[in-house]
């Protein structure tokens, strides 16, 4: 780790100001950023901690019924408090280990957009809205490939709004070492259709499996997937699994998510 300064603003406005400085970077739970610093792969002058900002903490229900989660809310808080959206709570409860869940935040996870992270699949499958200090971004416009998002420099995720589905489930097939998702599939059924988002599998990061969405919107059962298959093209191939294996798992995990939803 290189030396850095730390600021702990207590308002979003304060955080935005602090982040306007050169070489300043937001710090959520630090579960990705701190290991990166320890490896000396990043060298910000100033870290701006977002976890002391009350406006960015907690879970509530909006007038339209959407579940709103503060951008600096920990995975553990979501696991314990998102009972209005059980599939989401279960996803949060399956991230990492207790230490990671008590520190890591939803905003940090989404801003990081690790191709194997869990939250991006929930956000995309739920057609959630990412609220920042500057604007609201639809899930379909937010994720931009590996470790890239629509966020501008210094922009902060302050809240995420999840429309609550009629039924949903997340199936995570563990990468044996990291226990991130080798393949994770989030299925959410709304009155106007089903959305299926896949993480861990694609070289382009989280994506929607539109064939499955179409099939499941007509018939919300695993058997609706029988004729479908996912092409291995563009799937991640590494020492934990070939592209074919990942493509195969997408279908298996989707079926399991539908059955469990």
């Amino acid at each position: 780790m290189y030396a850095f300064n730390i600021e702990r603003p207590s308002t979003i406005a304060g955080a935005v100001d602090a982040l306007a400085k050169d070489e300043a970077q937001a710090l959520g739970g630090g579960q990705t950023l701190i290991p990166t610093l320890k490896q000396r792969l990043a060298s910000p002058d100033t870290l701006v901690s977002l976890t002391g900002i009350p406006e960015m903490q907690g879970i509530c229900t909006a007038d339209d019924g959407a579940l709103c989660i503060g951008g600096a809310t920990s995975h553990a808080a979501v696991a314990a408090g998102a009972s209005a959206y059980p599939a989401l709570a279960a996803l949060a409860g399956g991230v990492g280990d207790p230490a990671v869940r008590n520190r890591g935040t939803i905003g940090g996870s989404l801003a990081n957009n690790d191709p194997s992270a869990c939250y991006p699949s929930a956000v995309l499958a739920s057609d959630a809205t990412i609220v920042t200090n500057a604007r609201e971004i639809a899930a379909d416009d937010f994720f931009d490939g590996l470790f890239a998002t629509a966020l501008d420099e210094g922009e902060i995720i302050t809240e995420v709004r999840f429309p609550v589905p009629e039924a949903a489930n997340y199936q995570k097939f563990l990468q044996p070492a990291s226990r991130f998702a080798l393949v994770g599939v989030f299925v959410a059924k709304y009155a106007d259709g089903v959305r299926v988002a896949v993480t861990g599998a694609s070289e382009d990061g989280v994506f929607r499996w539109s064939d499955a969405e179409a099939a499941l919107s007509g018939n919300f059962s695993a058997s609706a997937l029988a004729e479908l298959s996912v092409p291995a093209d563009g799937m991640i191939a590494d020492l934990h699994g070939s592209a074919e294996y990942r493509a195969h798992l997408v279908k298996v995990m989707t079926g399991r998510a539908v059955s469990a939803a």
Partner: peptide, 8 residues
Amino acid sequence: LSPSRVWA
């Protein structure tokens, strides 16, 4: 005998 090897 990782899942991917057994599946393969």
